[in-house]
C-alpha cells in the first residue's frame, strides 16, 4: 500500500484540535501543561463553545496560555484569576468562564481569591495544575511541595517544622458550600488523560446548570523544576505525589 492510500479522512485517528493556535507550545517537553491545554481545547471544540468561552490565564508557566488557545482570554495578575473570572461571569452570565492556574498562583498568593470564589459559588471552572513547585521562576518551593522534597528554596528538602506543611487546597474547597464538583486527575497516561477529559466535559456541562463552582485539579509534573527526565518525572509523580494527592472525585453533585 502507498502512503497516499493511507492518508485519508476515514483513517484519521488523531489530530490537533483546531482551537490550538499555530504558536508552538513554550512548555518543556514532557510537561503536563500542554496535555491539560489540549484536553480543555478539545472539549471546547467538541461542544462548539469557542464563541461562548472566556478563559483567564494565570502567572506561572501557563502565563502565555492565551497564545496557544484560540479563544478570547484575559491574563490576570499573579493569583487573581478567580476575581477576574467572578466579574466576567457575573457580567456575562451566558458565557462559559474558566481560570487556568498553577499551585503557586492558586494556593499561595491567590488563596483568598480562590477560597472566596469557591465559597460564593461562582459559576465558573477552575483548572488547577499542581506540580508541587514554582516552575516558571526556576523551581522554588510551592505551597504544595511535598515534605522532604528538594527545591531551590528548600535545597535540603522541605522541613515542615520550619517551612510548614503542604496545602491540600482541593480537599479544603470541597468543604465549601459553593463548590459543585471537585475532582483530582492526572494526564500522564492515555487512560488518565481520557478520565481527565471526562471530568472537563462534565465541568462544562455543569456550568450550564448554574449550581456553583467546578474545581478540577490535575496532579502534574515539572521535569525541569524536579530535575528529572520526563519519564522519570512521571514515575516520581506516581510514587510520591499520588499518595499525598490521591486521584479521584472529592465532591460529586448529588443529582
Amino acid at each position: 500500500m502507498e502512503m497516499k492510500d493511507i492518508i485519508k479522512p476515514e483513517n484519521l485517528v488523531f489530530k490537533k484540535t483546531s482551537l490550538f493556535t499555530e504558536k508552538p507550545l513554550s512548555y518543556c517537553p514532557g510537561c503536563g501543561h500542554g496535555t491539560v491545554h489540549r484536553l480543555i481545547l478539545e472539549t471546547i471544540e467538541e461542544m462548539g463553545l469557542q464563541a461562548e468561552t472566556i478563559g483567564v490565564a494565570p502567572v506561572g508557566c501557563s502565563v502565555l496560555a492565551y497564545e496557544f488557545m484560540d479563544i478570547d482570554m484575559q491574563q490576570a495578575a499573579h493569583g487573581r484569576a478567580p476575581a477576574l473570572a467572578t466579574a466576567i461571569k457575573r457580567l456575562h452570565p451566558e458565557k462559559f468562564v474558566f481560570t487556568y492556574q498553577g499551585d503557586g498562583d492558586l494556593a499561595a498568593i491567590g488563596t483568598a481569591e480562590t477560597i472566596h470564589a469557591c465559597n460564593r459559588g461562582e459559576n465558573i471552572i477552575i483548572f488547577f495544575v499542581n506540580n508541587g513547585i514554582y516552575g516558571m521562576t526556576g523551581g522554588q518551593m510551592a505551597p504544595t511541595t511535598l515534605p522532604g522534597m528538594k527545591t531551590s528554596t528548600s535545597p535540603f528538602g522541605r522541613d515542615t517544622e520550619i517551612m510548614g506543611n503542604p496545602l491540600k487546597i482541593t480537599e479544603l474547597v470541597a468543604h465549601l458550600p459553593g463548590t459543585y464538583y471537585v475532582t483530582r486527575n492526572a494526564v500522564h497516561t492515555p487512560a488518565a488523560a481520557r478520565k481527565a477529559k471526562k471530568a472537563i466535559q462534565k465541568a462544562f456541562e455543569y456550568q450550564k446548570l448554574n449550581k456553583g463552582l467546578c474545581f478540577l485539579e490535575f496532579v502534574s509534573n515539572c521535569n525541569s523544576g524536579w530535575k528529572l527526565p520526563p519519564v522519570k518525572s512521571n514515575e516520581w509523580m506516581v510514587e510520591n505525589m499520588f499518595p499525598y494527592y490521591p486521584l479521584g472525585d472529592i465532591k460529586v453533585p448529588s443529582l
Partner: peptide, 8 residues
C-alpha cells in the same frame, strides 16, 4: 480582589 474583578 475588588480591583481584579474590575479588570475582568
Amino acid at each position: 480582589s475588588a480591583i481584579n474583578m474590575c479588570y475582568g
